[in-house]
């Protein structure tokens, strides 16, 4: 599997896929996509990187343990749900506001943070499983 071509191309492929996964995640609310699919794409990206170049570069690149990323995602999703407590509305009610980024109006919402949480949970869990399995393979 670790051919020269694959090894050379893998980092670029992985970066592209991660970028694409973030794109898919953010467009999810209006077009096909979302946190779950985005997470799966990013997880496969890391799996590919791991197969091509070994597990330790992936772990180094991720910096955090994938399971920690997953845990953070769950926390983020739960917090996004809890935020509604401060607005006297039921748990998980979506809250929206508009902010301006570089002069452009951008809709921002708890729903988006929730979706990011889903993304992180999926990326983290599946990556950690894949990496753990690959680690043994490459010893």
């Amino acid at each position: 599997m670790r051919t020269l071509i694959f090894r050379t191309i893998a980092p670029y492929l992985t970066s592209l896929m991660v970028l694409f996964s973030i794109f898919v995640l953010l467009r999810g609310h209006n077009d096909p996509g979302g946190g779950f699919i985005g997470g799966l794409i990013a997880a496969s990206a890391f799996a590919i990187y791991g197969i091509a170049c070994g597990v330790s570069p992936v772990r180094r690149a991720l910096y955090f343990h994938p399971m920690a990323i997953s845990g953070f995602g769950l926390l983020l999703a739960a917090l996004a749900g809890w935020l509604s407590i401060f607005f006297q509305v039921p748990f998980m009610t979506g809250l929206w506001t508009k902010i301006s980024v570089l002069g452009l109006p951008v809709d921002i919402s708890t729903v988006m943070f929730f979706d990011i949480g889903v993304y992180l949970v999926v990326v983290g869990s599946i990556t950690s499983i894949a990496l753990a399995l690959e680690e043994r393979e490459h010893g």
Binding site: G28, H29, N30, D31, P32, G33, G34, G35, F36, M67, S70, G71, G73, L74, A77, A78, G81, F91, M92, G94, W96, D107, S109, V111, F114, D115, G117, V118, V121, V122, G124, S125
Partner: peptide, 27 residues
């Protein structure tokens, strides 16, 4: 829910609590 993608809106908004449970299971 301010979203055109019905599937995604169901997942993250209408049935968000379900999803929260599901991602906990995933983890």
């Amino acid at each position: 829910a301010h979203g055109r993608n019905i599937v995604n809106v169901i997942i993250v908004d209408f049935r968000g609590t379900d999803t929260l449970g599901e991602i906990a299971v995933v983890m």
